[in-house]
Design a protein around this nucleic acid. Sequence first.
DNA 1: TCAAAAACTTGACCTGTATCAAGAAATCAC
DNA 2: GTGATTTCTTGATACAGGTCAAGTTTTTGA
Lengths: 231, 231
Amino acid sequence: MLNRDQYTGCTVSMGTSRCFEKLSEEEQSVLDAKSVIISYKKGEIITKKGSFASHVMYMVSGLAKVYLDDGVNVLVLKIVPPGKLFGLSSLSEENTSFQYSSMAYMDSEIKLIEVGVFKEMLEKNSAFAKEVIETLSANNAQINGRFFCLTHKQSYGRLADIILCLSDMIFKTTEFSLPLSRKELAELSGMSAETVVRMLKKFNDDGLIALDGKNIQLKDYSRLKRISESG
Amino acid sequence: MLNRDQYTGCTVSMGTSRCFEKLSEEEQSVLDAKSVIISYKKGEIITKKGSFASHVMYMVSGLAKVYLDDGVNVLVLKIVPPGKLFGLSSLSEENTSFQYSSMAYMDSEIKLIEVGVFKEMLEKNSAFAKEVIETLSANNAQINGRFFCLTHKQSYGRLADIILCLSDMIFKTTEFSLPLSRKELAELSGMSAETVVRMLKKFNDDGLIALDGKNIQLKDYSRLKRISESG
DNA sequence: TCAAAAACTTGACCTGTATCAAGAAATCAC
DNA sequence: GTGATTTCTTGATACAGGTCAAGTTTTTGA
């Protein structure tokens, strides 16, 4: 049999944004001089699509979603964990406003870096620029994989994806307390909140997970994986 | 009423890749020395996901699709018209293989640029690098809009999107001969080929388009637009 | 030029998942 | 602490659009 490529609906890309490692101490301090760290409470809007894109962001601690919203539907593009740069669309000369909205899933500390100084670094330090290109590409690839899943997998697979993703990439343990509501899980997996409830229940009844309100424990990782893969 | 944001399932982003304008004549000729122009016949594979990413590509003439494929389903990420750079995921240091497959929709001439020399330009010429970042961001934004549509609009809206997109961005006229099969339209709009046939027929019967085999004439642009917008 | 293959079309059927409704549980605000 | 919201859960219902099958038309290639 052909080795069928796998995509996941996972919302978090690997690794951290490593561009800052390429800056000299002096450059870093120039950057820091034009940066502030802001605290956001759970549920607070961080950026609103269409508003003036004056900065790029770096997640220091916490968790946020980056999403599109047309007033009726919401599509979560990605979840931003600590160590990640986001809001890079602000670098565009053509689009001076944010292309995406973002919201804190939990209390978060976010470093806002003035876009002018960030661009200045791109000009001065090509290793930095290359790292930023790397970040953009990785981000691209990850969202495209998610795109594939949300359009071609069915609900069980998509929900399994999200559960595995949260476990593997965010909480790094098989038992955790969800900071997300069912509605938010629904946005992530591209389905209705009611369907999420039903499917979580099914997973619970089938012994794949143990569910207790907001607490989830993965009981059968490999079967979840199989569901994720088979769609 | 709130101004509801609009996204389209359109597969082509605006404008052309302008990074080359930032190169000096000398840099351009260094680049050209490491480039070749290759002709592809309609239906030929240009890059295969997973194969060694030795070059980035520039569409000189023709039309191609960039897509993901898991062996069962196909998702077209974008259509590449002349004047566009593609395959930029090759720039990643981490992924030395193509992240996406691509195929010629019609006979095409494509310039293959050796990835090493392209990276060299990124290092040397920061205006060039900034333009590439711009291209990546625009590409991002465009695919995300498409992502939104394919997950939240229903079929009529998605098909209307594609028809309008082909008319506005590719053929630049309201009457054209489709180089794509129904199957390919289906991939683009994320539905089955049978459904495409049925919906095209409906559009035809409703006087939105005049259909004659591969020939499409847009009869009621504004109503198509409304269908596209209302989903 | 003609047979074989591919693409297109139409109909019948079926199912995954959204939507609506309504009650239970949890959370929030004062 | 208690009433008011907001979430969560479950059931009933509806339908968009996929799948399968079978016929027709177009394209291909020897």
